[in-house]
């Protein structure tokens, strides 16, 4: 075990897998000589060379499209979007080319696309988004979103090994804020949910940065016993763990940092409505970012992103129900 930041854990996952498997190559803008906009691949080019840590043209469709081509002839590309927001420029290649290849013609596309996502530091409308739901809605793609350093490494290794296109959501605001003990060497984190804290009276379901918001909001909430379920994987969605938690607690708050409509949490809520109605002792409450672009100025951004206070308020309201 070594203590490291969430960011270093992502790097460690990439490095471990690159050492183990020479088919793995990294592709992205400014990831080589510069080491990436967030320095996730700092020092990689020295160890692995410019062919495997490829500085590409500024072309997201190009990055994903060529990665698909490389994958179907035997490489395992890991693509970095400089910010998750720019994936919109590579969206078509992910959704229409990568996502449908296996279903249509039986050809697996083993690519991983890293999306540095999320807000909280005045990134504004184009550097703060959480676009995971776009990909949840597109068949053939897996979507994962670690919240801890240990899972960041384990999910990175598992994503690279998974023979499908995997969208790996890495939250920028966790990069240096979150630290933890990370196992040395190679290991995989399963695409399943994890109980971040046990509890009996209510469960908060979240993923990514919102796991930390939920933990903080419910650490001491008028003595209530509150479970926090960290989804870790959005596709596949761990339905069993969600339904089990609802059965156990009977009250649910679902938190998304993404915009409210059709967010991952909307799917979780729909699942609960369909399959756990009898287990509920109150309405499912949702906390999410309202359906506006993420504003730049600190007070405006703070007004829309789900805060510890808003999560706490939702929990209180539901506990009293």
């Amino acid at each position: 075990m070594t203590e490291m930041t969430y960011l270093r854990a992502i790097s460690d996952g990439l490095r471990t897998e690159m050492r183990d498997d020479e088919r793995v190559l990294l592709m992205g803008e400014d990831i080589g000589v510069y080491g990436g906009a967030f320095k996730v691949t700092d020092g990689f080019i020295e160890e692995f060379g410019a062919d495997r840590v490829m500085d590409t043209p500024l072309a997201e469709s190009g990055i994903v499209g060529t990665a698909v081509g490389a994958a179907v002839v035997g490489l395992r590309p890991v693509c970095e979007m400089q910010f998750a927001d720019f994936v919109s420029c590579g969206f078509d290649q992910i959704v229409n080319v990568a996502g449908k290849m296996l279903y249509r013609q039986g050809l697996p596309v083993n690519i991983t696309v890293r999306l540095p996502s999320g807000g909280g530091f005045s990134g504004g409308p184009f550097h703060s988004q959480n676009p995971e739901a776009w990909f949840m809605h597109s068949p053939g793609l897996k979507v994962v979103a670690p919240s801890t350093a240990e899972d960041a490494k384990g999910l990175m290794i598992a994503s690279i090994r998974d023979p499908n296109p995997v969208i790996y959501m890495e939250h920028k605001n966790l990069y240096r804020r979150v630290k933890g003990e990370v196992p040395d060497g190679s290991y995989e984190t399963p695409f399943r949910a994890r109980v971040a804290r046990e509890g009996d009276d209510l469960v908060v379901i979240a993923y990514g940065q919102m796991v930390h918001t939920a933990l903080e909001a419910t650490a001491d909430l008028d003595g209530a016993s509150i479970m926090v379920l960290d989804l870790r994987s959005l596709v596949p969605l761990d339905e069993e763990a969600i339904l089990g938690a609802v059965h156990h607690c009977s009250k649910v708050v679902v938190v998304d940092e993404a915009n409210y409509t059709c967010a991952a949490g909307a799917q979780v809520s729909a699942l609960i409505a369909e399959r756990a109605f009898e287990d509920l002792d109150g309405p499912v409450l949702r906390v999410a970012t309202p359906d506006v672009p993420i504003p730049f100025s600190p007070p405006l951004e703070a007004a829309v992103l789900p805060s510890v206070e808003r999560v706490r308020e939702a929990c209180r309201q539901l506990l009293e129900y």
């Binding site: 060529t66 290849m101 013609q105």
Partner: peptide
């Protein structure tokens, strides 16, 4: 590789195979 309808997406896939 079978084409997708979105034109000309396959140019990038072909370039990627050549890159490999």
């Amino acid at each position: 590789v079978g084409m997708v309808s979105m034109l000309p997406d396959m140019m990038l896939v072909a370039a990627g195979m050549a890159m490999a």
